[in-house]
């Protein structure tokens, strides 16, 4: 008797469960594209980093121009591999985006991952984030040329964050260009690298301007050169000479943008590109680029694909 009522009860719960599942669904791909009401922005790195900042800026920017609810999800791990692999598993999902950066191109080149840079649908490139070669205020180095000269004679220690990041690529490019070798100490984040420079644990380190602008202003750290084609237009950075001015022919930018999963419909791709274009015209886009001292370079869709191909060739050459 008792057990029968139990079964009935479980049946009742199951019925309720069906209703509940209906309420909490996130919706999956439909045959005909209908603009989603909510979307997810995957950030393949931890909260608080550069990728996270850019993912959140794009998410709130897209919310502003489309009226969507965009939830940010940090799927960190494996220098980005976890997040990109997750996106690979969401093929065809039209309500998912990923805040992309260099790892999209460099991970497939350096590591055994199951995705390639053409496994996804590139939507928008926001701009380029170049690196500055930084050193402590007390350092004897005045220019990047000094650093190269020193590296020819003795052990110069630089910090890098991961084997596939912009700092590793920049250091590799200098090594190839100048035929020198640097000792590398691996760190996990830009913040840690700044601390290492301040404490004198490493001699130099390539860092993005947004990571060091506070230290630059206070004078605790100095920039030796910028790995840009031309000098920065930002007031705080305009005095920093380019590497090329100092005889080092290295200019390399980490791109930041966002992509959608592979295999989405042409309509969905158009929808996201249009949203991206509206975002690029918004104040939020300009704010994001300026507060992070990046070079704006908004390209979309096929142009972005071509840009990625170029980047891949550069990275391939650098990581050799």
């Amino acid at each position: 008797m008792k057990s029968r009522t139990n079964h009935l009860a479980i049946g009742a719960v199951a019925a309720a469960a069906v209703l509940l599942a209906g309420c909490s669904s996130t919706g999956s791909s439909a045959e005909e594209f209908a603009a989603p009401t909510r979307a997810t922005m995957i950030v393949p790195f931890a909260a608080g980093g550069g990728s996270d900042v850019s993912g959140r800026a794009v998410a709130s920017g897209l919310e502003g121009v489309t009226g969507l609810t965009v939830t940010v999800e940090n799927r960190e791990g494996g220098a980005g591999a976890v997040g990109y692999s997750a996106l690979l598993g969401m093929e065809g999902r039209e309500d998912v985006l990923l805040a992309s950066e260099l790892a999209l191109v460099s991970l497939p080149l350096a590591q055994d991952v199951s995705f390639r840079s053409d496994s996804f649908t590139p939507i928008m490139n926001l701009g380029g984030d170049y690196a500055l070669l930084m050193t402590a205020a007390s350092s004897e180095f005045e220019t990047c040329a000094d650093v190269v000269t020193a590296a020819k004679a003795e052990r110069v220690v630089t910090a890098v964050t991961g084997a596939t990041g912009i700092d590793e690529i920049t250091v590799s490019l200098i090594e190839q260009d100048q035929d020198v070798e640097f000792a590398r100490v691996p760190y996990e984040s830009g913040g840690e690298v700044v601390a290492a420079l301040l404490g004198g644990h490493v001699d130099v380190a390539p860092l993005n301007p947004s990571e060091v602008v506070g230290q630059l202003e206070s004078g605790d750290l100095r920039a030796l050169c910028a790995f840009t084609e031309e000098r920065y237009a930002y007031e705080e950075l305009a005095a920093i000479p380019t590497a090329a001015e100092q005889g080092i022919d290295v200019a390399f930018a980490q791109f930041r943008g966002f992509i959608a999963p592979g295999g989405i419909s042409e309509d969905a791709r158009k929808y996201w590109i249009e949203a991206a274009e509206a975002f690029a015209d918004s104040e939020q886009y300009t704010d994001y680029i300026e507060s992070n001292m990046m070079q704006p370079n908004a390209v979309y869709g096929d142009e972005f694909v071509a840009f990625l191909d170029e980047t891949r060739a550069d990275v391939e050459a650098a990581l050799g």
Binding site: D52, S189, S210
Partner: peptide, 23 residues
């Protein structure tokens, strides 16, 4: 410089409000 994971997120928030964390 963030002291831990949560302060890293808070520092990220600084930038989003247009503040420049630093010395």
């Amino acid at each position: 410089i963030p002291g831990g994971a949560t302060t890293a997120v808070l520092l990220g928030a600084f930038t989003m409000y247009g503040l420049q964390p630093g010395p």
